[in-house]
Design a protein around this nucleic acid. Structure first.
Length: 601
DNA sequence: TTAGGGTTAG
């Protein structure tokens, strides 16, 4: 909305509300701003001030702009800019306020443009200027602009300022340059809690939980007291790693130091417990929370969804609504995932429609992805294809990738080829896509296609992310890579795995080598490749190193393979162990020879 | 008269 002219402003000043509330004597415009509750009222105050001496006064205009930038909207920012431009000699204070507003608005980089515009003038940026500008760059993921600001702050000797440092770290991590952030951090002589938090959060958000946790330990070594924000990031790292022991320790720490009064800490604890495979702990914490906000409800709905408990997710949503808590986009993402994991196509469709029409939430690419998954997994591949084709936005490779997985699950080579073409048009560097397609060819014995595809993959230098599974034993997280030991299996772990497979075979396990791509391999070689998959290595490690009868919790970075899924079911039966396996999509709870996913995943 | 780090999704 463009801001109205002076004539409109002056007409507003004569409205009834204005006369009633603000023309009592003595009407002091500065005082009026502190009582102001809407942009409309603010305009009336400004119009009123035109008649007074205050019009054009720096501190008065600054107050007006501050009001506009507190929770910026398109119109409030446009009005603020109008006031800013009208100032004959703006001061840096006023600019800082404008920059803060932009950094919180939908057009954060406007802060940088304004900065570039005024830089040549007499306005000298100060230690209040950089945090807002850097925040804007972080939000917009504008690396170049952020780096330029870093240079300017260095020239002005402000790069080690206590307020500037955390935003520099935050800007670099949001722009995916964690190492640059670490350089900034390492230059700080005595980093404070906020600096540690910025760096720990950066590691955690960039999927580097081990570094986050080691920095957390370093922080404790320096006797710096963590605060609730530290705990949020550390919990998020525990969740990434599936590190239940450390997560429990943080829970105890939070209880002891009074951090459990924070709703966000509880929400992060719920998420951690759920992602570490302990859904019961998540539920009991959730039920104990006196006040639950949208995020807490969403976290629990998402937790149920990831554990394949769609019914519970949906019931919780009903409870949430009956307590008049407004759902957000994440609540619906949880519900849609719950439906897609369990094949509830109609219910998922209904939630999508309610989200858009009843709650006026604009679907994001993630919601679309969930819908494609819902249709695809349920075998409605053509519908899923049509859904992507009709989207109001340009489909991303990820969206097609979800459909490609579904084609693989439903053994549809023809559509998989078509979908792969669409993916390769957008991104041909993702090795996983070639692997899925060649697995499909292999399963259908189209060996000549397997060979040519592998050649194409090699020519395009596409790399597949290796499978990694991890397991925590006695506070230490052990990682296993798929294929470890294929060439020379000499360790105790490999011998134990070989023995276990022998026993499994006696119980009826038949290795499913159909998805092992390499056409030139012997049956024996294929079986070995399959045997040393990361999840089998991790589960065996768990069997060897944890007390009988305890639950084995494994985290995998990709989707679990069909053969490992079969093996895990049998292991749970033969060794009397519950195995909780988190893959990139969801949880699988293996018990008594069955999986909680009901073999639908 | 302006200022730093923030869970749930990805």
């Amino acid at each position: 909305m463009a801001i109205s002219s002076a004539s409109l402003l002056s007409s507003l000043s004569h409205t009834e509300t204005f006369t009633k509330h603000y023309t009592v004597n003595p009407p002091n415009p500065i005082l009026l701003i502190s009582r102001c509750s809407s942009l409309r009222e603010l305009m009336q105050i400004q119009a009123y001030a035109i008649k007074s001496d205050l019009h054009g006064d720096v501190s008065f205009v600054t107050k007006l702009i501050n009001f506009c930038t507190e929770s910026p909207t398109e119109s409030s920012m446009s009005y603020a800019r109008h006031l800013f431009d009208a100032m004959s000699e703006p001061e840096i204070v006023v600019f800082n306020s404008m920059a803060r507003g932009y950094s919180r608005s939908t057009t954060p980089l406007a802060a940088f443009s304004l900065f570039a515009e005024i830089l040549g003038d007499d306005l000298l940026p100060d230690n209040y200027t950089f945090p807002s500008l850097l925040k804007a760059c972080a939000v917009a993921k504008a690396f170049e602009e952020g780096r330029q600001l870093h240079c300017v702050s260095m020239k002005l000797g402000l790069d080690d300022n206590v307020y500037v440092c955390p935003t520099l770290i935050n800007m670099y991590t949001e722009c995916e340059d964690v190492d640059a952030a670490r350089c900034v951090f390492d230059r700080i002589v005595e980093p404070c809690v906020v600096c540690f938090n910025a760096m720990i959060t950066g590691y955690s958000r960039r999927n580097r939980p081990n570094e986050a946790l080691s920095l957390f330990r370093e922080m404790q070594g320096k006797n710096l007291k963590p605060n609730e924000i530290t705990l949020l990031s550390v919990l998020s790292s525990c969740a990434l790693l599936g590190s239940l022991d450390l997560g429990k320790w943080i829970h105890e720490y939070a209880k002891k130091h009074g951090f459990c009064k924070y709703v966000k800490v509880n929400t992060a604890l719920i998420d951690m417990f759920a992602k570490c495979g302990s859904l019961d702990d998540a539920v009991s914490l959730f039920e104990k929370m006196r006040y639950k906000d949208t995020q807490a409800w969403s976290a629990m709905i998402v937790a149920y969804a990831n554990h394949g408990k769609a019914e519970k997710s949906m019931l919780l949503f009903e409870r949430m609504r009956s307590e008049n808590v407004q759902p957000d986009e994440i609540t619906f993402l949880g519900l849609l995932n719950a439906c897609s994991h369990t094949g509830l196509v109609e219910e998922g469709d209904e939630y999508f429609s309610r989200m858009v029409h009843e709650f006026r939430i604009v679907p994001s690419i993630k919601h679309y992805g969930s819908m494609v998954d819902l249709l695809g997994r349920a075998g409605r591949l053509d519908d899923a294809y049509g859904f992507i084709d009709r989207l109001p936005i340009r489909p991303t490779p990820l969206l097609w990738r979800i459909l490609l997985s579904a084609c693989s699950s439903h053994n549809n080579v023809e559509l998989a080829e078509k979908v792969s073409e669409r993916i390769f048009e957008l991104d041909d560097s993702h090795g996983g896509d070639y692997v899925i397609l060649s697995n499909l060819y292999a399963r259908n014995k189209k060996w000549e296609y397997v060979d040519s595809l592998r050649k194409v993959m090699k020519d395009r230098k596409a790399v597949k992310v290796p499978g990694v599974s991890s397991i925590e034993v006695n506070n230490v997280v052990h990682e296993f890579f798929s294929g470890d030991g294929v060439k020379s299996a000499t360790t105790k772990l490999h011998r134990a795995l070989d023995e276990m497979v022998k026993e499994l075979k006696l119980a009826g396990y038949v290795p499913d080598t159909s998805m092992v791509v390499h056409a030139d391999m012997s049956a024996q070689e294929k079986e070995i490749t399959l045997r040393y998959h990361s999840e089998k290595l991790a589960i065996t490690f768990g069997l060897l190193n944890t007390p009988a009868g305890t639950t084995i919790r494994v985290v995998k970075n990709l989707r679990v393979c069909r053969d490992c899924h079969n093996a895990a079911k049998l292991i749970s039966l033969m060794f009397g162990r519950r195995v909780v396996l988190r893959d990139v999509q969801r949880f699988h709870h293996f018990e008594d020879g069955k999986c909680s996913c009901g073999d639908f995943w």
